[in-house]
Amino acid sequence: MIIKNKKGDLATTLLVFMTLVLVGAALLSFIYSKGIEATIADSRFIDNLYIKEDQIKFYLTEAGVNSLAKSYDDIVKGDFLVSSPKKENEVLVFDNFNENFANDNLKEKFSANLKREIAKYKFNDKTLLEFQKEISAGKFNVDLKDDVFFIEFRDFSIKGGSVIGEKERIWVWGFIPTTYKEEKLKSLISVIYRPAFLISVNITENGLATFKEIYFVSNVCKGEENTAQCISNRLKVFDVGVQKQDKYKFVSLKSKQKFLVNEELKNIEIKFLI
């Protein structure tokens, strides 16, 4: 029965195979075609994203400088400068120094203060609120190399969109020619921008000195007759005061520049005995 129905089967098989070939060809045509291409030559199109990037950089830098001042102040006021502090009348005798200990403390305080500084802003912009959330969650890295703090903030997406086409459409209904409907049509282009933020906050350039330098200069100058002048010549960012106190010299370093600590402008003061 099947052998005798050969012609009918041939047409069906041919149909199946040809359909397959054509659909395959159509798919290939799609795969190898270039697709939609549009060149946007004007950078203003993504200006809004760059504005957000700039704002984040500004707030990171601001928070970085304020965190540096607050952390520095915390370190010099607390027992974080040397691992086993020796004191005379509650004043630190600066006769030993462990750079790693001081730097680790400074770094730890810097990270905590950076979170606090960013969290204080009452943003209402969506991107800035997301940025604030990420920083509060600790999604950033802080590194201290020599006298520079590096704040690294990555994997943050700035989302933006622009309406690129807006046209009034008028539908004239065929049945009732006098009525029409107006619609504003919008085409939206969404852009996601992932910049990497690497902010550096230089201790020296911001009007302070590293603890290592202060220790080194103090040691060099403690034998000098005019210790204040000696320190002042080497640590130009401070106003220096030296007083004789028993077997020690009482050194007071007051930053020439004022810093924003807890929303108050003040000089940072370091007092110790050498």
């Binding site: 549009a38 199109f45 200006d47 704002q55 500004f58 690129i164 086409g165 807006e166 049509l185």
Partner: peptide, 25 residues
């Protein structure tokens, strides 16, 4: 029906300006 969707009119959409912000900073 809707006009060319690949046409981009930039003037209307720049609500903020990078240059103005940088000037303020």
């Amino acid at each position: 029906f809707y006009g060319a969707p690949d046409e981009i009119n930039l003037e209307k959409y720049t609500a903020e300006s990078l240059e103005v912000q940088q000037g303020l900073v």
